[in-house]
Amino acid sequence: MEQAEKKRPVFSKKFYIAVAVAETLAKFVSIVTLIRVFSAFEDALDVDAHAGVEEKGTTLANFALPYMQSAITTLSVAIATLVVCGFLRHKMLKVVAK
């Protein structure tokens, strides 16, 4: 009985809070990044609508695509954090619920 209790991993409340906060932050960051990506595209389309005949179609490549590269990196980090934190949180809750 004692051995079984010793084997059961114990998680601190603070660690659980840290993981949950990191998970929520990752969700928030991914949504804010998506908002900024959509805004960048909308701005590019707006600029394109008023561009001259020769510049038409180039604004998207010049304006929105460089921004997309940093957005994809941010989204990748946020999604990775989300997966790791979600996994940890579920594992901790399972142990606590026992």
Binding site: K13, Y16, E23, K27, V32, I35
Partner: peptide, 23 residues
């Protein structure tokens, strides 16, 4: 996206409060 962000963050805080009671 704005509504989604508000709903997710608020719901997560409520879930955290509920989970901490289990601890």
């Amino acid at each position: 996206l704005f509504y989604l962000a508000v709903i997710i963050v608020w719901d997560d805080i409520l879930r955290l409060v509920t989970d901490l009671r289990k601890f």
